[in-house]
């Protein structure tokens, strides 16, 4: 295990962390803002991958698919918002879990109906299909692109949340939605915008992941649990929490799998259990 091994694993962990981040940030901000647990968030990720594959197959253009797929997913998210999500906002965690659990089933079978049961692949775009050599290793350019994409989203989210008007509004509403409403913030519209943005990121994560892992009907359920773990470990509703949580889980799972293969999976759950018991508000909670 030399330096190049560690570097390679670090890059793998980073790439997984970034995917988790793209998914968990939407989930966590939606929860922090609306107190809504959307188990179907990961199903939107799956839809992102499938729509990306279809658009790419129809037009032959990866980048078009890359742009369009999050938009399509956002539209679906908007429909869900007005039919179900908005209605379930005050219904308590159990009902929310149940309804979105039902949605997982529905979306799963719709995907099977639309695309069938076989795994579908997506070619990385030509300009990123080569490997890059540096510091004694060679690494696929497309995976580096994912890391860069995650970092760009991370930094722009941070800038938006900390430095802009809308960011201040979101933070104020996470802190106290009633107070924010009385300050003249249109909380309903803000909820909708944030929900749509979360869906767009889920769709983006889906289409970005498709060239690495092929699209399957179980991809949503598979990534849902790690995403939820990230959100809970980090602290519901917190950007910094989502970043920290994604990095912890990404690195823990990647290095666990190579260093302690027998223990790795249980490790993650033990970490989650420890956080829930000793620090139920998460490592970096949104509220002081």
């Amino acid at each position: 295990m030399d330096a190049s091994f560690w570097l390679l694993q670090c890059l793998n962990a980073m790439q997984y962390s970034m995917l988790l981040f793209l998914l968990s940030i939407g989930l966590t901000v939606i929860f922090g803002l609306m107190h809504f647990v959307n188990l179907a968030h990961a199903s939107l990720y799956m839809l992102g991958a499938y729509f990306g594959i279809s658009v790419s197959a129809m037009t032959g253009q990866f980048w078009l698919a890359f742009m369009l797929s999050p938009i399509i997913v956002t539209c679906i998210g908007a429909v869900l918002y007005f039919t179900l999500i908005d209605r379930m906002r005050g219904a308590g965690p159990m009902n929310q879990v149940l309804v979105t659990f039902g949605l997982i089933f529905v979306i799963l079978d719709l995907v099977r109906l639309g695309w069938g049961d076989i795994a579908l692949g997506l070619e990385a775009p030509a300009e990123l299909s080569h490997t890059v050599s540096f510091w004694g290793i060679s690494y696929p350019a497309y995976r580096l692109f994912i890391i860069a994409l995650g970092l760009v989203v991370m930094i722009s989210m941070w800038v938006v949340l900390r430095r802009t008007q809308i960011g201040a509004m979101i933070r104020a509403s996470v802190e106290n939605a009633d107070m924010a409403a009385s300050l003249g913030i249109n909380v309903g519209r803000l909820f909708f915008l944030v929900f749509c943005f979360g869906c767009a990121l889920a769709g983006l994560a889906g289409v970005a992941a498709a060239p690495i892992f092929s699209a399957t009907t179980t991809m949503g359920i598979t990534i849902l649990i790690p995403t939820l773990i990230v959100v809970v470990i980090g602290g519901l509703g917190s950007l910094e929490g989502a970043i920290t949580g994604s990095l912890i889980i990404g690195f823990l799972e990647t290095f666990g799998a190579v260093l302690l293969p027998s223990l790795s999976a249980v490790l993650t759950y033990m970490l989650l259990a420890a956080v829930l018991v000793f620090r139920p508000q998460g490592l970096i909670p949104a509220r002081g």
Binding site: F31, V37, G92, P93, M94, V97, I225, L228, I229, V232, L236, S262, A265, V266, Y269, M270, L272, A273, L276, V277, P280
Partner: peptide, 28 residues
């Protein structure tokens, strides 16, 4: 016992975690 002080969505998540822990244990 461990989750006695959590409630709402945290209880749901905690039980989900413990359940998946057992699942992963047998799976592996």
């Amino acid at each position: 016992w461990v989750t006695a002080r959590t409630s709402g969505i945290f209880f749901i998540m905690a039980t989900l975690a413990f359940g998946q822990m057992a699942y992963t244990f047998f799976f592996k």
